[in-house]
Nucleic acid binder design. Sequence first.
DNA 1: GTTGTGACATTAT
DNA 2: CATAATGCCACAA
Length: 108
Amino acid sequence: MNEAALQAIWRTVKNIPRGEVATYGAVARLAGLPGRARLVGYALKVAPAGLRLPWHRVLGAGARISFPPNSPEHAEQSRRLRAEGHTVTRGRLARSPRTRLDELLWKP
DNA sequence: GTTGTGACATTAT
DNA sequence: CATAATGCCACAA
């Protein structure tokens, strides 16, 4: 197992502020694990509930929700994102054409 | 050991 | 828009 990496990922996700979001790739980079986006998905999957991670703020490339549409997880993530002021359309965060994705992403 | 799968990303068709 | 090819790697079988 790789406890250190998981810890780094969990710590990073925990630091994403309310109203901000980050991609799996970005979280991996910020955690010092460039190129290991898949590990982030795994880390979130196995994260202890007690950590209270804001997992809903982690999106796929293009600000897309990485759960199948109509899945309970997808619904839950959408709900939480909307609760933080975002507009979710067809599984993605709404962004006007002029607003680049970078503007929505968490930049520490 | 190998193989298939997956909360992924990027680039190229 | 959709696929495919790579790269990545933990895990289960």
